[in-house]
């Protein structure tokens, strides 16, 4: 893969930068250019997520694709933000057996994958359990 393919997503992936419909207020991460509810009547603007959410569902990957070589077992989850946006990411700094649906989590900047030994290293946001007060 060429570098621009990943470079162009850096702003979104590093900063949890999504979009929001100026008409109905629905927030999107991953970003969307058209609001499915308002379609062309909505004006979609940039929106930054805070990096908090809760686990909707999860799995522990034990058979990994080549891009994740050597990382298993790792936890993949669908996370929902307070704004209602849902996306897929990994959970880190938690034992797989301790992960639960409904668990509050927060963003942490991490390495995601390597494009082979000589390729690009991909970074982005993973999630860890929210520190309890």
């Amino acid at each position: 893969m060429t570098v621009p393919r990943f470079w162009r997503k850096i702003d979104n992936r590093y900063n949890l930068r999504g979009t929001r419909c100026g008409n109905c207020g629905t927030a999107f991460f991953p970003p969307r250019r058209i609001c499915p509810g308002c379609r062309r009547d909505g004006s979609v603007e940039t929106y930054d997520f805070e990096g908090r959410g809760e686990v909707i569902t999860f799995t522990v990957i034990r058979a990994e694709p080549p891009s994740m070589d050597g990382q298993t077992p790792y936890v993949v989850a669908i996370i929902e933000t307070p704004e209602g946006a849902r996306f897929t990411s990994q959970l880190v700094d938690v034992e797989p057996d301790d992960v639960e649906i409904g668990m509050p989590v927060e963003a942490t900047f991490r390495k995601i994958a390597e494009d082979g030994a000589d390729g690009v290293i991909h970074y982005g946001v993973k999630f860890e359990p929210t520190a309890r007060d």
């Binding site: 991953p30 569902t57 999860f58 990957i61 990994e64 694709p65 994740m68 990382q71 897929t88 990994q90």
Partner: peptide, 26 residues
């Protein structure tokens, strides 16, 4: 799947169906 926002984060096909299974059980 969505290459940029699912498999990029290490979600495999079995992984995605596993998340459906987990939720169905829940």
């Amino acid at each position: 799947s969505d290459t940029e926002w699912e498999s990029f984060y290490g979600a495999t096909f079995p992984g995605l169906y596993a998340m459906m299974a987990r939720r169905h059980s829940h």
